[in-house]
Deep mutational scan, measured.
Amino acid sequence: PDLGLTQLFADPNLIENLKKNPKTSEMMKDPQLVAKLIGYKQNPQAIGQDLFTDPRLMTIMATLMGVDL
């Protein structure tokens, strides 16, 4: 199971919303991170391994779920 990750990354406004959010806007200036996020739309399971190697993803996930870290 993808634990709902498919829906989190399926939002067509995902990148724009993250660019507008004060907690994630600075991160979204990294083209490699943006490319990763776009890739998760097609393969949400890929985030599982990346969560352990890129701490920014935890902040992004929390933001998408509405959790304040």
Score class of each variant (00 low, 15 high):
residue 30 D to N: 03
residue 39 G to I: 10
residue 49 Q to C: 10
residue 40 Y to M: 10
residue 25 S to V: 07
residue 12 P to N: 07
residue 28 M to N: 00
residue 22 P to F: 05
residue 59 T to L: 15
residue 41 K to D: 04
residue 31 P to Q: 11
residue 42 Q to L: 09
residue 10 A to C: 07
residue 11 D to S: 04
residue 38 I to F: 05
residue 44 P to H: 07
residue 17 N to R: 13
residue 44 P to D: 04
residue 63 T to N: 06
residue 51 L to F: 12
residue 5 L to H: 07
residue 65 M to V: 08
residue 63 T to F: 15
residue 30 D to Y: 01
residue 49 Q to G: 10
residue 53 T to D: 14
residue 69 L to S: 14
residue 13 N to H: 12
residue 67 V to E: 14
residue 27 M to S: 03
residue 45 Q to H: 13
residue 36 K to R: 10
residue 54 D to G: 01
residue 45 Q to N: 14
residue 63 T to L: 14
residue 6 T to P: 09
residue 6 T to N: 14
residue 9 F to P: 01
residue 50 D to E: 11
residue 68 D to W: 01
residue 2 D to V: 15
residue 33 L to C: 02
residue 40 Y to E: 01
residue 66 G to E: 13
residue 31 P to S: 07
residue 40 Y to I: 10
residue 20 K to P: 00
residue 6 T to D: 12
residue 7 Q to D: 11
residue 52 F to M: 13
residue 57 L to F: 09
residue 37 L to M: 04
residue 64 L to S: 02
residue 36 K to Q: 10
residue 18 L to S: 00
residue 12 P to C: 04
residue 47 I to V: 12
residue 27 M to E: 02
residue 51 L to N: 04
residue 49 Q to E: 14
residue 65 M to L: 15
residue 10 A to L: 13
residue 52 F to V: 13
residue 12 P to S: 06
residue 16 E to F: 06
residue 46 A to D: 12
residue 69 L to N: 13
residue 14 L to A: 05
residue 14 L to M: 11
residue 40 Y to F: 11
residue 65 M to N: 05
residue 46 A to I: 08
residue 66 G to F: 07
residue 63 T to H: 10
residue 40 Y to C: 04
residue 4 G to M: 14
residue 60 I to L: 05
residue 60 I to R: 00
residue 18 L to Y: 00
residue 28 M to C: 03
residue 52 F to R: 12
residue 28 M to F: 03
residue 13 N to T: 07
residue 34 V to S: 03
residue 17 N to H: 11
residue 15 I to A: 02
residue 33 L to F: 11
residue 11 D to E: 08
residue 20 K to T: 10
residue 43 N to S: 06
residue 58 M to C: 10
residue 56 R to E: 05
residue 58 M to V: 15
residue 63 T to V: 15
residue 21 N to G: 03
residue 66 G to R: 05
residue 50 D to M: 03
residue 17 N to E: 10
residue 58 M to D: 05
residue 59 T to V: 14
residue 29 K to G: 06
residue 65 M to S: 09
residue 66 G to C: 08
residue 22 P to N: 06
residue 67 V to A: 14
residue 1 P to K: 03
residue 30 D to T: 01
residue 61 M to C: 09
residue 39 G to N: 15
